[in-house]
């Protein structure tokens, strides 16, 4: 009984904390934008478009903060808003998705330069670049659902149940998509192991 009461109190506190987190838009953007930008960028393959979608996502989140019930993490909530915006974008540009987007896709070589130099040697940096390139290439060949779920799991660090709730998909379907995505990524990077 006491445990149940504690759990309820913790949930209420978490919900209040999350709601107050949404009130400070600057802090919200500062905390969540890098991860959200990465999620959107690699979901659509266009860095410029991703920026505007991310911005829209924060606007929507801020304007609709009253509807946030606090039953999931803010990160999960933001990701599901971003996911809806990505889907809208996909509906608009169904056929030129990923194809034209590659013009403004991120350059992994350039991105790898942002890695802290203290953390890795020159050799490992080259290996990291290669691995990243292969994962990026594998992502481009995944289906939309597989890519989104992969990015939610490994980019946003969301649990499988959270992903299922965010994209309104049965848990087993999420598992299947993720399994296939991982298989494809593994096949792509297999040559460099």
């Amino acid at each position: 009984m006491q445990l149940a009461l504690d759990a309820t109190l913790t949930n209420v506190q978490t919900s209040e904390r999350s709601s107050s987190e949404l009130e400070d838009i600057d802090a919200l953007v500062r905390t969540y934008r890098p991860r959200l930008l990465r999620f959107v960028t690699f979901s659509i393959g266009d860095a410029d478009l991703a920026e505007s979608i991310t911005q829209d996502c924060f606007l929507k989140a801020y304007n609709g903060r009253a509807s946030f019930r606090g039953d999931c993490a803010v990160n999960t909530w933001l990701t599901s808003i971003a996911m809806n915006l990505i889907r809208d974008q996909q509906r608009l540009q169904k056929f030129r998705f990923w194809r034209q987007a590659r013009a403004t896709a991120i350059d992994v070589n350039e991105a790898a330069n942002f890695l802290p130099s203290k953390e890795c040697s020159a050799e490992s940096r080259v290996l990291i670049k290669e691995q990243t390139k292969h994962v990026q290439a594998a992502l481009a060949n995944l289906s939309v659902n597989q890519r989104s779920i992969f990015l939610m799991r490994f980019g946003q660090d969301m649990e499988l149940a959270e992903i299922a709730a965010a994209i309104h998909m049965p848990l087993n379907t999420v598992k299947t998509h993720l399994h296939r995505a991982l298989k494809s990524v593994r096949a792509q990077v297999g040559g460099i192991r």
């Binding site: 990465r38 690699f42 992994v108 942002f114 290996l127 670049k129 990243t132 994962v135």
Partner: peptide
């Protein structure tokens, strides 16, 4: 690696 590079970017 992908996570680290893309997050840094």
């Amino acid at each position: 690696s992908f996570k680290a590079v893309t997050l840094a970017w």
